[in-house]
């Protein structure tokens, strides 16, 4: 029996790293990375938290994470394509700075 609480705590840790990157970091590529770490954290809390069900791993959370990974990679592809176009049209400075607020 693996203590799955460890994974829930680690997931929360990843979420906080992702939020930190999203709020504090300025470079768009690094913020995109932060969003990815954030979603990995949520997935980890999902799988870690769902293992209480008796009789082996629960299939539903796994299916959810599987879908979530696909969504995350499409979002990343879109975001990186946008970053490239911003760089092409508006130059280096706009990729490296300016926060969301």
């Amino acid at each position: 029996m693996i203590p799955s609480q460890i994974y829930v705590i680690a997931g929360a840790g990843l979420v906080s790293v992702g939020v930190f990157a999203w709020v504090v970091r300025r470079h768009l590529v690094r913020r995109m990375m932060g969003v990815n770490i954030l979603s990995t954290g949520v997935f980890m809390m999902l799988i870690g938290g769902a293992r209480r069900v008796e009789g082996g791993p629960d299939g539903v959370p796994q299916a959810m994470v599987l879908t979530g990974i696909v969504v995350a990679v499409s979002a990343t592809a879109l975001g990186l394509a946008l970053i490239q176009r911003i760089y092409d049209q508006r130059g280096e400075r706009s990729v490296e700075e300016r926060g969301p607020m």
Partner: peptide, 23 residues
């Protein structure tokens, strides 16, 4: 384009927070 980028970050983190609630 920068507006879209900002919107992307907002929409992604918004739905991740929703997903956290679902979890």
């Amino acid at each position: 384009l920068p507006a879209a980028m900002r919107y992307l970050f907002v929409t992604l983190s918004g739905s991740l927070l929703y997903l956290l609630g679902v979890v």
